[in-house]
């Protein structure tokens, strides 16, 4: 048994940042655990002998993280899993929302736009986490980066809504039967994904995405305000949730 408090705050911060950095570089989580634990052992012993963190990681923690990252293979399988979850997850949410308004119909532009924005959000998230963990940012700068990360997809989604009104693309009508089938598919998808990935990430994100708009829709606010507010709450919540998950992983 060991107490984590044996490590100085600076070392703990380094290990946390390293974990986030490697995670957002798409490395295998068990390999991340291994190297972080190995460095934890090293830092503990070094600190007991009065050595500074710099003596271990050098003067640029970012350069050191990169060196480690370069020697670790990317975990494409897990990332494929995450990407499928995020893109289809964001779809299933839009679908769940629209189901309350009757039979579904989407233009090709809407369908393609969702996939593209989902992709941008994933790339943006990874880039932002890598940037935050690699550079010693102040809390405010960190919050700034995360705000940009959450605002960009919102901007794109709002843009997509207007763009979709301006541009005519073929519309796909699902019909009543198609809509019911789609609804069932969503439920199966959510349950299946959560079971397969052994994570609550999708239900939690779905709830964050669906509930604010639904609940705000029950209030007297006008539609535009509801849209903006709920999107802010949803993506802000997801950003915070992902960040907490990353931070919490080191405690496992």
């Amino acid at each position: 048994m060991y107490a984590e408090t044996e490590l100085s705050a600076k070392s703990r911060k380094f290990l946390e940042d390293l974990r986030v950095y490697l995670f957002s570089s798409g490395k295998h989580s068990d390999e991340i655990d291994e190297i972080v634990e190995e460095l934890e052992v090293h830092l503990m012993e070094a600190e007991q002998k009065g050595k500074s963190v710099e003596k271990i990681v050098g003067h640029s923690p970012k350069a050191y993280m990169e060196q480690l990252s370069d020697e670790m293979p990317a975990d494409f399988k897990s990332w494929f899993k995450y990407i499928v979850i995020i893109i289809f997850g964001s779809f299933s949410f839009t679908l769940a929302n629209d189901l309350m308004e009757g039979p579904l119909s989407y233009s090709l532009l809407e369908l393609a736009g969702h996939v593209v924005i989902g992709g941008i959000f994933i790339v943006g998230t990874l880039t932002a986490f890598k940037y935050i963990s690699g550079n010693q940012l102040s809390k405010w700068k960190e919050i700034g980066v995360l705000s940009v990360l959450t605002l960009v997809p919102i901007g794109f989604f709002v843009g997509l809504i207007y763009f979709n009104r301006a541009v005519e693309t073929p519309v796909i009508h699902f019909g009543v039967a198609g809509t019911i089938l789609t609804a069932m598919a969503i439920v199966v998808f959510i349950v299946g994904i959560s079971w397969w990935a052994k994570t609550w990430v999708l239900p939690i994100i779905l709830t964050l995405l669906v509930l604010p708009e639904y609940l705000l829709g029950l209030t007297a606010l006008d539609q535009q305000t509801v849209l903006v507010l709920s999107t802010l709450i949803s993506f802000g919540g997801i950003g915070i949730y992902l960040f907490i998950v990353n931070r919490a992983e080191r405690a496992v």
């Binding site: 190297i35 003596k55 271990i56 990681v57 020697e71 670790m72």
Partner: peptide, 26 residues
């Protein structure tokens, strides 16, 4: 790891950041 770094230092590689060994070990 820590022993390895210590040994290197004992042999005279004392200007090295100790963490350098981990990417090599990986």
């Amino acid at each position: 790891g820590y022993e390895l770094a210590e040994q290197l230092e004992l042999y005279g590689f004392d200007a090295l950041s100790e963490g350098t060994i981990y990417p090599l070990l990986l």
